[in-house]
Write a protein that binds this DNA or RNA. Sequence first.
DNA 1: CCAAATAGTAACCGTACGGTTACACTTTGT
DNA 2: ACAAAGTGTAACCGTACGGTTACTATTTGG
Lengths: 101, 101
Amino acid sequence: MRIRTATDLGAFIRERRTKLGMDQIALAKKAGTSRKWLVEVEQGKPGAEIGLILRTLKSLEISIEVEADSPVETPSQGKAKAPDINSVLDSLKKRPLKKQI
Amino acid sequence: MRIRTATDLGAFIRERRTKLGMDQIALAKKAGTSRKWLVEVEQGKPGAEIGLILRTLKSLEISIEVEADSPVETPSQGKAKAPDINSVLDSLKKRPLKKQI
DNA sequence: CCAAATAGTAACCGTACGGTTACACTTTGT
DNA sequence: ACAAAGTGTAACCGTACGGTTACTATTTGG
């Protein structure tokens, strides 16, 4: 299922929880959170912290996949997009070391 | 890419951002958050709120998919998996229907 | 009817999330 | 050499997230 909003996520969590025959207390305990928090998350609370969300999904054996929609946006670089050298150079340009004076 | 931790998510966000040629300020503004927040998220902050995360992923044109790992109760023989009767029974057993007095 | 189980809600409270501002460090371009 | 761009970090502060506890529906079962 594609997740676009916190409400989507809450609905999916609730559906999975009930299919597994768990109540809110059981899931909250397994995920290391509180029942209050789970209630709010299942209702689509956008302020829920990602760490607790991930623990909850793991407790429900739900996997998350992220994917870039468009391969890459090359605005005006023409049509030659073979080796994507810019990305390679950019990644090599990452802050390598912390140099001390 | 499979997301298991907040660090995974932060790394993916950063990779996508740089591939799109955006700096932290541009992405933060587009996602409606602050650069400080984005720095922490890219470093794997588990306390980041899911609402801001979703806005950021949308700004990067990243889609999220969630999926239940096991259908419901791994039936060892996956040949013809009848109309998952267990789920039906479970849901009926839990909170079946709203019955009128 | 009453009791039990599950879920939604409210209050209070300590903590930390997120925004703002400022400064330090590195790389790049002039 | 310098300045600019990009990033990491620190401080302060208002707000709200999450935990706890309690109470309220709603349904089921005795």
